[in-house]
Amino acid sequence: MFKSKKTKIVASLVLLMVGGLCMWFILNFVAIGPGLPPPAGMPVWYVPGLGTRMENGTLIEVRSVAEHFELIDDRIMDESPSCFPAVSQYCGYANCKRTGSDDQYLIAAWYFDDEKKFLQSERDLYQYLEKQGRVSTVELDISKEINEEIKRRENRLAWGPTFGPKSFDVTKYESEITSGFFLVYKIPFIEGRDDYFIVYYGAMGSVNLSNQTPFLKELIAEGYYLIEPGTVEDLKS
């Protein structure tokens, strides 16, 4: 690239200085934010993963989710759980179990940064669910669970926006493989920005969904995040 050693040194110094200026420029003239994950990182917003905590100078792995659950393994990103179609490339899921039981649960999320794609995928998913199991719309009230989650966060010096309705329609899904609830979060961060999530909270196996609903509501409250005028609603056919 350079013909003489002197040229190399001069070129290196010039580029070094330009690079330094680059740093200064970036720090001064590039706005910070909005600070939300890129599309491929979005599913983590509603899918819990392993965390870490410092105890006595050592990092400890944290598996707990909400009050009564813990992750079986870390969340899996860029994959849809095998029981559902990959309606978005931006997806992920996590399996967890309830403390003191053998019951297993699935939390899955599909993210869309385009309304058209979202609407099409929503329809596709709905049709798939109708073929695989029973689908209906029910109203869930998570007021109690949200209040408990707020207290839990306070104890952990945490906080999160819990704006929006605490009682809303969700899509109830029952099958032999998994049963649970689908929530659709529309534009939960910034008005005018296309962010759509389909989130599933379900119990694995053939279960009585009524018995599992209180536990699933705890998981839903743990992940609940909505900044108005965003909405949370059921799947549309």
């Binding site: 590039v30 706005a31 910070i32 934010g33 600070g35 994950p37 890129p38 491929a40 990182g41 983590v44 993963g49 392993l50 965390g51 870490t52 870390d74 990103m77 860029d78 992920g92």
Partner: peptide, 11 residues
């Protein structure tokens, strides 16, 4: 660590 994607321009 534990995050699937880079932070980018982020505080």
């Amino acid at each position: 660590n534990g995050q699937p994607k880079p932070y980018g321009h982020h505080s």
